[in-house]
Design a binder for these strands. Structure first.
Lengths: 178, 178
DNA sequence: AAGAATGCATGCAACACACATGTATCTCGA
DNA sequence: TCGAGATACATGTGTGTTGCATGCATTCTT
């Protein structure tokens, strides 16, 4: 048995990333009945933003401003969000409706369930090891805040452990930018 | 410091998968100047198939048959593939042109470069550990051959070590289906 | 108070994709 | 050898998602 090629790990990582992203997207869109970007928007609205504006949402999702407006149009038409007055007159807030929050929660659960099943073959110890390595890679991929889109869109804040300071990205961000 | 939540690993895995997929897609489309599915098609045509037919391509990419026909239209229009007679009169072969192969190779290199940089923070030992864990997860995600789309689309066969029998998916497939 | 900047909305267009259908070729049985 | 069914590719049509350019309202700066 000859040595594995140097790039095998890289290749496997790419395959896993693609496969996992596919499965999550499939589960999430099946569960919520809405498109991928709509799902990402709902997830973000459920978690990231206090009083989410259209503009902020466009940053999180990496969509253009007009694209985000259309997306919000669709979500509003489906009764998942409603537009309201923002903090000042120039902005519009986009809070979730009760139905929207329900869909968002379901979609997050579906995501975590898929991810959990992917981790199925690993022991507890191995998961811990994996978490460490993945955290380091994610930290390495960090960019300045507000660069393009959130690397963490679709993240589950509670699961991530961010409030308790367990999220490696959050910790790194604190260390870098205070 | 309280214990990390049980789902943290799952969440980190999801974040990494999304981030990696994003970066790869960005690099690949920047490099090749074509869409994501076009890039996947070029990669597949460069590697997976002996005498690729439209139908087979649609299976690999998980596109509908008509969608694949349009995709091939575009690729042909860009001079990246050319349609030719297939093995029998009913089929059409879609080999890469020289230009197409060049683009495909560049795109694969861009992909591996991104993945390699993601692995940057890890030591050699850690990469080895990661490869083992990722391989196990991928095997766990396997489905019957011909299910929907290839989990390995965009894979680099040489990097994967498939010819030498290093690819965990290939090994598992052999064990299962001979 | 005037001008610049910011944020949201809309007209318009492009792109990728799916569904339904049409057409050509192959396969198999009588 | 002929015809029925299967297979594979192509095309008409419609839809959903996105971006660009632009218009308009509000806020900030000087």
């Amino acid at each position: 048995m000859t040595a594995a090629p140097a790039d095998q790990t890289a290749n496997l990582l790419g395959a896993l990333a693609l496969a996992v992203t596919d499965r999550v997207a499939e589960a999430v869109t099946d569960r919520s009945g809405c498109s991928e970007s709509a799902a990402a928007a709902l997830s973000a609205l459920d978690q990231f933003l206090d009083r989410p504006s259209v503009d902020r949402l466009s940053q999180v999702l990496g969509l253009s401003q007009s694209g985000t407006v259309r997306l919000v149009d669709r979500l509003e038409q489906d009764g998942l969000v409603r537009r309201g007055p923002g903090v000042d007159g120039g902005t519009t807030a986009v809070p979730l409706t009760a139905a929207g929050r329900r869909v968002a929660r379901g979609l997050e659960a579906a995501r975590l369930q898929v991810l959990d099943s992917v981790l199925g073959p690993l022991t507890e110890d191995e998961r811990h090891t994996l978490a460490t390595l993945v955290g380091r890679m994610l930290v390495g991929m960090m960019r300045e805040p507000g660069a393009t889109r959130w690397t963490c869109r679709m993240c589950d804040l509670a699961a991530c452990g961010r409030p308790a300071g367990h999220c490696p990205l959050e910790r790194e961000a604190r260390a870098r930018y205070g």
